[in-house]
């Protein structure tokens, strides 16, 4: 289990790169890497040479997250102005612009079947679910407010939702908040199930294990990665090693490893059997905002790939084997 650097693009964007995801391969083309940046653009890159396929403008303020539909034909990007732009990957034609005021938009993810887009709704303390056929809002999963003498400022800003993740069976959505709590929802009933506790600082990234729909990984500003049994409400392990905030976490398609990106400028690979970091990549010179494993399937080389993007305006591609 190791990572080997393949290619890095310096100045891939004019400003910090804040988001990255892989657009799955289609019958006509291989998987593409989609990146979003503070420079208000979204770019498409073709592996392994990372040649720039296209630059999409049209966002105001920085692009904070990007998401790709499992079919590989549709992608979404969201920026600080709280608009979600949905576009056709191959033609760049705009499909929809989503907005659900007063929620702002942070992390987004399509469900595994591609029927729903989940959007972390920031200060609204909720996750919005959008239907991907008609692009209508179908549900708002709200975190129940804690009972207290006064529903003051603090509580609401604490439940600010930053991150969202679908379970591989599509039955659950988990979202992470500024106060470190993770909330788990039953999608079918649009119902809040329970909290997962353990973090006390913002949870910026969440991912379910592709191998086990119960296992959830969370990355937090407390420099830890937690591994939860999301159904049993229990914490399986807490993994430390990063020197600063853990900004992004992704699980490898084989389910044996996870990768994390951190403010400490490193990308780490964690062996889940040892529950320890087995490799640290330090090729970035500023915070690493996104790490993403390439999903399996499609034509082209079959080897595992991991991409990372950073505040240093660069993106890097690694071979994962």
């Amino acid at each position: 289990m190791k990572l080997a650097g393949l290619k890095s693009i310096e100045n891939a964007h004019d400003e910090s790169v804040w988001a990255a995801t892989w657009i799955p391969a289609t019958e006509t083309r291989p998987a593409l890497l989609l990146t979003g940046s503070l420079d208000e653009t979204v770019k498409l890159w073709k592996p392994d040479e990372l040649t720039l396929e296209r630059t999409n403008a049209g966002h105001c303020l920085g692009v904070v997250s990007v998401a790709a539909h499992p079919s590989g034909s549709i992608a979404a990007s969201a920026s600080l102005d709280s608009f979600v732009r949905v576009f056709d990957v191959d033609s760049n034609a705009s499909i929809a612009t989503l907005e659900a005021p007063p929620s702002e938009v942070w992390q987004m993810q399509f469900d595994p079947k591609g029927t729903t887009l989940a959007v972390a709704g920031g200060g609204s303390a909720s996750v919005q679910l959008w239907d991907t056929e008609k692009w209508k809002l179908i549900a708002t999963l709200s975190i129940p407010r804690q009972e207290g003498p006064k529903p003051s400022d603090k509580n609401s800003s604490k439940k600010f939702v930053l991150s969202v993740g679908w379970s591989p069976d599509g039955k659950r959505v988990a979202c992470g908040s500024m106060d470190g709590t993770i909330s788990v929802f039953d999608v079918a009933r649009a119902k809040f199930l329970h909290h997962l506790e353990g973090h006390f600082m913002p949870v910026r990234s969440l991912v379910y294990s592709p191998a086990d729909p119960r296992v959830l990984f969370s990355a937090s500003d407390d420099a830890h990665v937690h591994m939860y049994d999301a159904e049993g409400k229990s914490m399986i392990a807490a993994m430390s090693g990063h020197a600063s905030w853990v900004l992004s976490v992704d699980a490898s398609p084989d389910g044996a490893a996870i990768a994390t990106g951190s403010s400490d400028k490193t990308v780490r690979l964690w062996d889940l059997s040892m529950r320890a970091a087995v490799q640290t990549m330090s090729n970035h010179v500023d915070q690493v905002w996104g790490v993403k494993f390439r999903p399996p399937g499609g034509p082209g080389p079959r080897a595992g790939r991991l991409a990372s993007v950073s505040d240093d305006k660069s993106l890097s591609l690694y071979d994962y084997s």
């Binding site: 506790e197 049994d229 409400k233 914490m235 807490a238 529950r275």
Partner: peptide
Amino acid sequence: NTYEVDATSSLLQ
């Protein structure tokens, strides 16, 4: 051997 703890009691880890 690590063992699982209840997430709510992990408060006291």
